[in-house]
Nucleic acid binder design. Structure first.
Lengths: 206, 206
DNA sequence: CGCTAATCTAGAACAAGTTTCAGACTGGGT
DNA sequence: ACCCAGTCTGAAACTTGTTCTAGATTAGCG
């Protein structure tokens, strides 16, 4: 069976190497954040030569973005198990993001490493960052509810929610905003989704 | 006259050094963005020893955040000259941010250097980043209009607008969003401000 | 099995941010 | 004018991300 995406069909050994690398990275990041992920140490810790590490992940940022993708996929799976419970779409999204935020609070160093890598990434990582971004969009859309294809207005709202989510995380990680502050920001931006669709829509201006 | 803030009263020569450093940094950043700002080159280009550069700005990120502060102060002054022309507060804020965005489009490399530094900054730079953040808040509040002390709801909206502003810039700089996309995001988030205050306020839920 | 191309390893080398240090210089107080 | 403390310089050293190279290993294939 050919791979689903454009992965060039890794052998079992290679798959195992890749996984060891990601695990070692996650462990180091959980200890001390972005700075604690040192390429030599990742290589040694995952039993791989430095050159091989760079063959699998062409930079530290690529590596950490891959870790973020991993974590997001886990979150997505967990959310499928226990979807948000609120009625209002906006509240469901806020609940979902707060759940993700609590996960980050449990591993603040890991969050630091992932989020700093994500926002520091330059154009050479844009494909990988885009994958992470699409995953995030999917998670938010899933949280919004069972609706069919989202409207352009909804997509704009989701984009802005994502912006706020990333930037609020950064201010929290750098100690410039409290946990309460992040909650408020999330709840504030989720108002853009508007109350549940059954209510009377107030006319969009222009 | 003692300095207004906690600046330890630099001599004229020191003030000149500081300014040369910032100018050299701005010039290098305009050429090639974050990566083109190399500390050795900044030092040489501003006629200062490397150690001195580090005495003035304890890291590359500190340096670039100081440049961003400089640029924001210039923008603030320019906005005082020609304030936004729209009637609606939300439109005024959007207009102001789009004006800033056009300035960034004129110097995309400089924008890259400043914004990447700002979002990559860790706790050791939080004081300086906070200054920049407060300046940004001031600019947005100024754009909103001549109103007195802003309400907590307005402050939340402004925070979210700032988040969106920074994050949208990043997606643009890393080539994952178009200029049009950024405009849409800015206009979308500015709706959080709501229509001008003269209209009937719809009751805040909870 | 034996061949070939691709992959992996160990280690050196390079690049740029940061630190350190000895000595020269400056500015303010006497 | 002189002296002290703080500042600046030039240069080397250190750190960590990244690249390179020569040789060993592995995978796929006839």
């Amino acid at each position: 069976m050919p791979p689903l995406v454009s992965a060039p069909a890794l052998t079992a050994r290679q798959e195992a190497r890749r996984r060891r690398i990601l695990q070692a990275t996650t462990r180091l990041a959980s200890r001390g954040g972005f700075d604690a992920v040192q390429m030599r140490e990742v290589a040694e810790s995952s039993g791989v030569a430095l050159g091989t590490l760079y063959r699998y992940f062409p930079s530290k940022v690529h590596l950490l973005v891959a870790v973020m993708r991993d974590q997001l996929e886990q979150l997505h799976a967990a959310l499928r198990e226990r979807p948000p419970t609120e009625d209002d779409p906006a509240a469901r999204v806020a609940q979902t993001l707060m759940r993700a935020f609590r996960a980050m609070q449990r591993e603040p160093h890991l969050a630091d490493a992932m989020v700093r890598a994500l926002t520091f990434a330059d154009r050479s990582v844009s494909a990988e960052v885009d994958t992470v971004s699409r995953l995030t969009t999917t998670i938010i859309l899933d949280a919004m509810g069972p609706a069919g294809p989202p409207t352009p207005a909804q997509l704009s709202a989701v984009r802005v929610i994502e912006h706020t989510w990333h930037s609020a995380l950064i201010t929290w990680l750098s100690g410039r905003a409290s946990i309460a502050q992040v909650r408020i920001d999330i709840e504030t931006v989720c108002r853009l989704i508007g109350p549940e669709p059954s209510r009377q829509a107030y006319s969009a201006r222009s």
